[in-house]
C-alpha cells in the first residue's frame, strides 16, 4: 500500500519534511514504550453498551510529544482522566494501561502530572500561589518549609516567571490565564513526572501566550513524554511528533505528524484540515461536514463517521473499521485506499 498516494484534496499539502523532531522519535524507537494503552474501552457502569472510548490503542515513548486531536464528545477528557486515575466512579474501564511496563494501578501517582484548559479553576482560589506550589514540593520531595520555598521559586523561574517571590504572594485571581498556566506547569514539573498530560492547555489563551506556553512545553519534553490534547489541528501538527485523531471514542487515524499533514487518510482528518480558515489568499468557503459527532448513546454498529462522510460504502454502515496500515500512519477507514 502506498501511503503517499495523492488524495483528492483541494489544497496542496506540505511538500517535504526533513528530519527534525521526526528523527528524534525514530532514535528512541528501540526503547520500550513509556505509556502503553491496549484495547482501552470505557463504558458507563450502569449502561455497559454506551461506550465513551472504544478499543483505544496507543503507545508513547520518552521524549515524545504526542498530540491527540478531538472535538468535544470525542472522549479525549475521559482518556486523560483514565490515564491519570481520576476517572469518575460512574465509568468502567476495560483493557490495559501500562506505564513503563507496570499496570496503572501499581504505578506511583507521581509518575503522571496533568495541566488543564482553565488553570484558574484548578488552583485553589483562597490560597496563595506560593502556598500551593510549596505544598506540592514539600509533599513530593519531603523538604522543609524554607527549602521548599526556595525550590518553588526556582520552579517558577524555570517556567519563565521573572519575579517568583512576588508571584508566590499572589492569589490565582490576581494573575492572568497565561501566568496561572505557568504555575500549573511548575506544579507539574515539581512532581518530576514521566508523563505529562496537557488537556487543551492553551485553548483559553491568547495566541502570543499560547506560543509561549507551547515553547515552554517543548523545553520539558526531553525529560518526559507529553500527551497533548487539543481540538486545534494547527497546534497539533506544528508541535507534535505524532498525532492521533479521536472521533466518537475511537482513534480513527494515528501517525507521524508529517505524514498526516501531507496525506491525511481519514475523511474526518481531512474535514478537520479544511475547517481551518486560511490566513492568506482569497477566502474560500470553509468546508465542514454537516452535523456533529454522534452522542455515545446513539452510536451505531458501523463507522461512526458514516453519516457525515461523502465516501460511504456499504460496509461502512455495518462494520466498524479497525486501525490498519503501516506503523507510521494507521487509519480506521474502509475507503482509505480509494
Amino acid at each position: 500500500m502506498d501511503q503517499t498516494t495523492a488524495h483528492a484534496l483541494e489544497a496542496p499539502f506540505v511538500q517535504t519534511f526533513e528530519q527534525g523532531n521526526v528523527g528524534r522519535t525514530a532514535m528512541e524507537a528501540g526503547s520500550p514504550p513509556l505509556l502503553s494503552i491496549t484495547g482501552l474501552t470505557v463504558v458507563l457502569a450502569d449502561r455497559p453498551e454506551t461506550r465513551l472510548l472504544d478499543a483505544v490503542q496507543l503507545e508513547l515513548r520518552k521524549g515524545e510529544f504526542f498530540a491527540l486531536v478531538g472535538e468535544s464528545g470525542s472522549g479525549k477528557s475521559v482518556l486523560c482522566s483514565t490515564i491519570m486515575g481520576v476517572a469518575s466512579s460512574e465509568l468502567r474501564c476495560l483493557g490495559d494501561i501500562h506505564i513503563e511496563g507496570r499496570r496503572l494501578s501499581d504505578v506511583d501517582r507521581r509518575q503522571r502530572a496533568m495541566i488543564y484548559q482553565q488553570p484558574s479553576l484548578y488552583l485553589n482560589p483562597v490560597r496563595r500561589i506560593g502556598f500551593q506550589l510549596r505544598e506540592t514540593v514539600q509533599v513530593i520531595d519531603g523538604l522543609s518549609k524554607k527549602e521548599a520555598s526556595e525550590r518553588a521559586a526556582d520552579l517558577l523561574r524555570d517556567v519563565g516567571i521573572d519575579d517568583p517571590n512576588e508571584t508566590m504572594r499572589k492569589y490565582p485571581h490576581e494573575m492572568s490565564g497565561g501566568m496561572n498556566q505557568r504555575v500549573m506547569i511548575a506544579m507539574a514539573v515539581a512532581m518530576k513526572p514521566q508523563l505529562l498530560i496537557a488537556d487543551e492547555p492553551t485553548s483559553a489563551l491568547d495566541v502570543t501566550t499560547q506560543k509561549q506556553i507551547l515553547d515552554l512545553l517543548e523545553q520539558l519534553r526531553s525529560d518526559m513524554a507529553i500527551l497533548f490534547v487539543t481540538h486545534d489541528l494547527g497546534v497539533a501538527l506544528q508541535r507534535s511528533d505524532r498525532i492521533g485523531v479521536l472521533y466518537a471514542g475511537q482513534l480513527v487515524e494515528i501517525g507521524r505528524a508529517d505524514l498526516v499533514a501531507r496525506t491525511p487518510l481519514h475523511p474526518y482528518t481531512r474535514a478537520l484540515f479544511s475547517a481551518v480558515p486560511p490566513l492568506s489568499g482569497r477566502p474560500r468557503r470553509l468546508h465542514s461536514p454537516a452535523g456533529s459527532l454522534p452522542e455515545p448513546t446513539q452510536r451505531q454498529a458501523g463507522c461512526n463517521f458514516a453519516s457525515r462522510c461523502s465516501g460511504t460504502l456499504d460496509t461502512c454502515r455495518h462494520t466498524r473499521p479497525a486501525l490498519q496500515g503501516i506503523p507510521q500512519q494507521m487509519v480506521a477507514c474502509h475507503n482509505s485506499e480509494a
Binding site: 501517582r109 507521581r110 503522571r112 496533568m114 488543564y116 485553589n124 506540592t136 509533599v139 500549573m184 512532581m191
Partner: peptide, 10 residues
C-alpha cells in the same frame, strides 16, 4: 477542580 488537581498532585 482544584481539589481534583490536588489529588492528582498526590
Amino acid at each position: 477542580r482544584y481539589v481534583l488537581a490536588a489529588f492528582a498532585r498526590d
